[in-house]
Design a protein around this nucleic acid. Structure first.
Lengths: 360, 360
DNA sequence: ATGAAAGCGCTAACAA
DNA sequence: TTGTTAGCGCTTTCAT
């Protein structure tokens, strides 16, 4: 750092500044004790233009309306002053906040994190930010933060497998896109769980498994209904009554999944294979099998969904999806709606990844 | 306060103009039975009170200033009209948005999700929301969304093991609290990794392990330096040069951890035990051991950190922390700062959880 | 190509 | 206890 002192007491209307090429460094750091808030008015004065011009330039609406030299002067002044536009004021005046809310049931689930990242990346490219709301499986009550934020700071919502609360469903409220869920009249993005489940089932059949047990997610949701539905249909086709199969249910915590897995595997009617609503659940099954001294896949084969990291760790056969793409697509739809375009629903494909838990 | 005068000659003293100036009402559509935006003015009219009263009541500042009956009337009117306060306007006027930003390096890591949940819960109790910013290991560049949001919509920041960008470090900018990191002059919350590492090392020693390898996190960070530091000190104490040990490095992806784990385990100098910077890495080591036909813990013992779900799944001995408490504490500090109190740094304890990967 | 003026919806001094 | 008034910092017609 140089010991040079910044000029603080400079008259703000000093005409020399506007036209001069060489301009003093920004008044940053220790030199200026008082750090007043820098507004667009300050920038305007510094650049010798009006507030309007500053606004035009800084929000990218300058081309064709403001001369290049003026625009440059504004940008320079803004940088020198360390100007940061006030988002609240902008939102209030323009009615748009360039922020979307992502409502999830459980921030803790790995699949969600990757979806968020996808959405976040897409949002950033469009100049938006993503506000995260974990509704903790609906625990937050009807008047959740999502609704509270609806006015003013959030332009729209992405609901990830979460129910859309009443207020947000009313006409005139903020646009909503649903991820992994379908509701009439609301645009959605989802995974093609059906085809994925079919592939998994076919794979199991080909490996000689006839009876197949199921470990369901306690959380519920359309996605899981679809997966489970294909499983039931598959068994039906083979003349097996799904209700006679060994089935269980657990939430996404390892402890719960393992406990339920043990119960399932100790059932005397235990089938030679299991399908689980997702990899976390399937992993619980595998961990349980190990605890019980059962060999995978010889004694029991397991297939999950999502291809989470844990699937690689446990050598688990699984139906892979692309969560980043899911998130990006979801933001894309919302962005379309925000721009007045009619969004087109999206269904993303799956891919069966065969690993050791079904014999490789 | 500064007496800065924007417009002169405004007819603020002429009551007539105020009431019948031309009305620039945007003539929208035909029938106005539309669902117009409901403002506090509407509520005021409906309740037969002034806007001030509405504001007072609805922001909980009524007690002692507004009569109960009036307050009730306001609440009723608000509910009937479906009024939702505009957050942007509130933020602009009051200078506070009741929102804090949580900046993380990687939304995808399970530990983070739980921390976020803890922060979120604490924030909600204080009437705040948490905005999530994934800076993707700094990929977002200097001018990240965090900084962009700093003005107006965010009251302060929680940085989770992420560097605090320059603009935010300057005096006068929004308050910041750091999680799992220390920087001069910035309040922080962190885990007592030292004690945890010592306990893990002692446990290993007691089980007869002398030489101990290490699998480090590629991400780096003070937390990991601390863990690694205790390991080095431990070996030093035994007269072993840490640099002679088998050590590796991987990022948090399972694939990378497994690959590096295989490399480590195939090293002819392979020690009887390994410590890993976190459970994800430790899990990679265990998965690698299985792939190579090595028995855990007979051929190789492993200890991780965090007690993630995967630790239960793989029966991994680990140093447990409480991420929810971490998040809650972090929000607590920030909240203190926001209220002008001087926050007290927090260090949270650890607990060694002994499982099968070290012989149970 | 640029500027003046008018608010967005709310809160907070200050009056009454 | 309640109302009046003046903006917060920005964008946006509408003039020029």
């Amino acid at each position: 750092m140089t010991g040079r002192r910044a000029s603080v007491g400079r008259a703000w209307c000093d005409p020399v500044i506007a036209s001069n090429a060489r301009q003093p460094r920004p008044v940053s750091g220790a030199a200026s004790a008082r750090s007043r808030k820098v507004t667009s008015v300050d920038v305007a004065k510094r650049a010798g233009v009006s507030q309007t011009t500053v606004s035009l330039v800084l929000s990218g609406k300058a081309p064709g309306r403001v001369s290049e030299s003026t625009a440059d002067a504004v940008r320079t002044a803004a940088k020198e002053l360390g100007y940061r536009p006030n988002a609240a004021a902008r939102a209030l005046r323009s009615g748009t906040a360039s922020a979307v809310g992502l409502v999830v049931r459980d921030v803790t689930h790995p699949f969600f994190g990757r979806t968020l990242r996808g959405a976040q990346q897409a949002a950033r490219e469009a100049g938006h930010v993503v506000v995260l709301i974990d509704d903790n499986y609906g625990t937050e009550g009807r008047e959740s933060s999502a609704v509270a934020l609806a006015e003013g700071t959030i332009d729209g919502f992405l609901f990830f497998a979460a129910k859309v609360p009443r207020p947000l469903r009313e006409p005139g409220s903020r646009p909503v896109v649903i991820v992994e869920y379908e509701q009439p009249r609301i645009p959605f993005v989802r995974l093609d769980s059906e085809t994925g489940a079919d592939a998994a089932l076919a794979h199991l059949a080909q490996r000689g498994h006839r009876e197949i047990g199921y470990l369901r997610s306690k959380a519920g949701g359309q996605t899981f209904e679809r997966r489970h539905g294909r499983w039931a249909a598959h068994l039906d086709r083979l003349g097996i009554n799904p209700d006679d199969m060994v089935i269980g249910e657990a939430d996404f915590a390892a402890e719960a999944a393992i406990a339920e897995g043990r119960r399932l595997l100790q059932d005397p009617r235990r089938p030679s294979a299991f399908l689980a609503d997702d990899d976390l659940l399937a992993s619980g099954l595998i961990a349980a099998a190990r605890q019980l001294g059962l060999r995978v896949p010889e004694d029991v084969a397991v297939v999950g969904f999502d291809d989470l990291d844990v699937a690689r760790l446990l050598d688990l056969t699984t139906v892979r999806f692309d969560p980043e793409a899911l998130g990006a697509a979801a933001f894309g739809l919302l962005h379309d709606r925000l721009q007045g375009k009619r969004p087109k629903n999206v269904v993303l494909p799956s891919e069966l990844v065969i690993r050791g838990s079904t014999g490789g």
